[in-house]
């Protein structure tokens, strides 16, 4: 079907996944095992089930999939409401990140029904029954739905996400931008670093140790087009690499999944064009 915005959930429920088994290629510690089914709510007319990825680092056991069920009539409208309800009323050990509950902070990014999105702005009306909830893909799991973002944040640090300027700051006022120059940052500055896109990028799955991934390349673009930054050439030098930048094969899972409706794929293409511009 035709998708017009990343908000849209595909009406096509199948295929749910690529033809690979759930544990194919997983290291022994990453293999997912069957979990437990928690009792269903009594007297509920609208039951919603969740198959949730669980991992308890202290148990020494492998990750498992637990099934929870809630009464829709006694729950808030969003997936995050359901997760909080489960944590409050069924299983207090369920662990996930959350903060703003309105799509601003990016903490509750997770894999919902096979695609990445923020739990706080995914309506329970939009998910399937039963629904699957996994942590963001290809991250070392600290606990349950909490992935270790150390590596992606280090990749962020590696692109020097700060103003690199040689001209001394003007006395008495800040470095000025014209409204047009400021406008060039639109579509970049809104990124909340939730890493839905990077976690959904197949190239980052295979080569995430070297490929920077869509979120970080979008941030790199943000500094490349900033009129106050004077390290454009150095930045392009640092990015021009078969892996850091050119592992992007324009698959565009990033643009499809961005909860803020940004377009990392387009920004990466623009970086590649900038590199060609200075060559010819």
């Amino acid at each position: 079907m035709l998708i017009k915005s990343s908000k849209q959930v595909s009406r096509w429920r199948t295929p749910k996944r690529f033809p690979v088994s759930r544990n194919s290629g997983a290291s022994p510690a990453s293999r997912i095992e069957p979990g437990v089914s928690w009792p269903e709510p009594e007297g509920a007319t609208r039951v919603q089930r969740f198959k949730v990825y669980r991992h308890d680092p202290e148990s020494g056991k492998n990750p498992r999939i637990d099934t929870y069920a809630i009464d829709r009539d006694k729950c808030g409208p969003m997936l995050l409401d359901a997760l909080i309800k489960i944590k409050n009323e069924i299983d207090p050990t369920l662990t996930f990140r959350r903060s703003c509950r309105e799509g601003v902070c990016g903490s509750c990014a997770m894999n919902i029904d096979g695609t990445n999105w923020l739990a706080c702005i995914r309506s329970l009306d939009e998910i399937s029954e039963p629904s699957t909830v996994y942590p963001l893909n290809n991250m070392d799991v600290i606990k349950d739905l909490v992935g270790d973002q150390t590596h992606v944040l280090a990749q962020y640090q590696s692109i020097t996400p700060w103003l690199r300027s040689k001209t001394p700051a003007p006395a008495g006022h800040e470095r000025l931008q014209s409204p047009e120059e400021r406008k060039r940052l639109d579509g970049d500055y809104e990124c909340i670093l939730c890493f839905c896109c990077t976690a959904g990028c197949p190239s980052h799955w295979w080569n995430g140790d070297r490929f920077l991934g869509p979120a970080i390349l979008l941030q790199a673009h943000r500094w490349l087009v900033d009129s106050r930054d004077e390290a454009t050439g150095e930045r392009l030098d640092e990015l021009e690499d078969p892996f850091k930048l050119y592992r992007c094969h324009t698959i565009l899972n990033c643009t499809r999944t961005c909860p803020k409706g940004l377009n990392p794929g387009k920004k990466i293409a623009e970086i590649k064009l900038m590199i060609q511009q200075r060559r010819s």
């Binding site: 295929p15 544990n23 194919s24 894999n111 996994y134 893909n137 799991v141 899972n253």
Partner: peptide, 18 residues
């Protein structure tokens, strides 16, 4: 070292893009 890696291609929904 013992942390499991969360699944990716095994669970990600096939989309027109990918």
């Amino acid at each position: 070292k013992l942390r499991p890696r969360s699944p990716d291609v095994q669970i990600y929904k096939p989309q027109l893009t990918s």
